[in-house]
């Protein structure tokens, strides 16, 4: 495999008493689109927060460009974060600033560029996501899809090396979904960055991903190209990719036997 930008090694992480990952390893290749897929509630967003250093693993290591994220000092971590960016599910635009100021925010924080230059960069980034005309709107005036595109413009403002998408397609209509899929693909090609998408929208993401990681049951159950995944022999992978209601992941939440539950109610 080619060079990797993120390497997760034997990662174990638990929240309270609940173990979320156990001994999990995978890699995110450089310059490619990697998709992390898995059923809801499996802790996919947690994975992104671990890579971003907002959470610390119980054991194991996460390497970003060869440097260990969990063992970084606070200032090293902040330094590293300027090279990655994250698109949150809600967009997380600052509601007290216009779209323009939102996109300009990271530039104003981290660079000493003149306002004239910042204006140029912001307009270019907004043009890339098709929102140059919306630069003076406030986040509350944007539709969900537009807010996510504005957030995407902000995420690429500093030309990061890795961009992480947290459920970019959730709750989008087919048109804005198509727009986002195309945007992610073209940004990855044009800017030469690496993308990491966390999602459970199988069809959309399989069409653009170069590398797929499927997680379930606290670990990786399949990793490879989309074609390899489709031919994967694990029933769990197949159930997930084809969206079958019942299979290794049961339809029913863990419960007492049905008859027993029904009859108990009558007796009491």
């Amino acid at each position: 495999m080619s060079e990797s930008i993120v390497e997760v090694k034997k990662l174990t992480f638990s929240r309270g008493d609940r173990k979320i990952y156990e001994n999990m390893s995978f890699t995110v290749p450089k310059g490619k689109i990697t998709a992390i897929m898995g059923p809801s509630g499996i802790g996919k967003t947690t994975m992104l927060r671990l890579i971003g250093g907002q959470l610390k693993p119980d054991s194991g290591d996460i390497l970003f460009e060869g440097l260990s994220i969990p063992s970084m000092s606070r200032s090293e971590l902040y330094q590293t974060r300027t090279k990655m960016s994250m698109l949150f599910q809600s967009g997380a635009l600052f509601t007290d600033m216009s779209v323009f100021d939102n996109v300009a925010f990271p530039l104003r924080e981290h660079t000493r560029l003149s306002e004239a230059l910042i204006r140029l960069i912001v307009l270019m980034k907004l043009q890339a996501v098709g929102l140059r005309g919306a630069k003076d709107l406030m986040p509350a005036e944007l539709s969900g899809g537009m807010a996510r595109r504005a957030a995407l413009a902000r995420a690429i403002a500093l030309d990061p090396e890795l961009i992480m998408y947290d459920e970019p397609f959730a709750g989008q209509d087919p048109i804005s979904m198509g727009v986002l899929v195309r945007l992610i693909k073209s940004l990855n090609e044009v800017l030469g960055l690496s993308s990491l998408i966390v999602t459970h929208d199988v069809h959309e993401v399989m069409s653009i991903a170069d590398h797929v990681v499927i997680i379930a049951k606290q670990g990786v159950i399949g990793e490879g190209t989309p074609e390899e995944m489709l031919k994967h022999d694990s029933p769990l992978v197949q159930q997930f990719l084809q969206g079958l209601a019942d299979g290794p992941v049961p339809f029913h939440f863990k419960a007492n036997p049905y008859e027993q539950d029904l009859l108990n109610g009558v007796q009491s």
Binding site: Q54, Y78, Q79, R81, M86, H110
Partner: peptide
Amino acid sequence: SSLEMMAV
């Protein structure tokens, strides 16, 4: 969170 991820 997004501020933190923007290294602010």
